[in-house]
Simulated assay, not measured.
Amino acid sequence: MSFSDFIVYVDESGDHGLRNINREYPVFVLAFCICAKDAYQQTVVPAVQQLKLDFWGHDAVVLHSHEIRKSRGDFAILFDADVRARFIERLNGVMETADFTLIAAVIDKQRLVDRYAMPNDPYEIALGFCMERLQMFLAERGQVDRTTHLLIECRGRAEDDKLELEFRRIRDGDNRVGRMENLSIRFVDKKHNSPGLQLADLVAHPIGRHVIAPEQPNRAYEIVERKFRRNAGGGIDGYGLKVFPRP
Rank of each mutant, 00 (worst) to 15 (best):
F244Y: 14
D99C: 12
G73R: 09
L241D: 14
K37I: 15
Q49D: 10
D237Q: 15
F6T: 04
H16Y: 13
L183E: 04
V61Y: 01
E124R: 02
N231K: 01
Q41D: 15
R141K: 09
T148W: 02
H205A: 04
T43K: 10
D74W: 00
I207F: 10
L197T: 00
G73M: 02
M180R: 11
F137H: 01
V224Y: 02
E181N: 15
T97N: 08
Y123S: 12
R157M: 08
S71R: 12
D5L: 04
F75S: 04
T147E: 11
R23W: 05
A200R: 01
I152N: 09
R84F: 10
R176H: 07
F244C: 03
N22M: 05
S4Y: 00
Q110Y: 07
E96G: 03
R168A: 11
F32Y: 13
R84L: 04
L138S: 08
A204L: 04
V27Y: 03
D82P: 02
R209E: 15
L102T: 06
N120G: 14
Y116Q: 12
V113R: 07
R171H: 06
P217K: 07
N175P: 03
L112Y: 13
P247I: 08
G233C: 07
Q49K: 10
E166C: 13
S71C: 15
G156M: 09
P245T: 04
P206G: 03
G233S: 15
T148F: 01
A158M: 00
A104K: 00
D74K: 08
N92A: 04
L18Y: 03
G233Q: 10
A220G: 01
F129C: 00
R186S: 09
Q143V: 09
D145R: 14
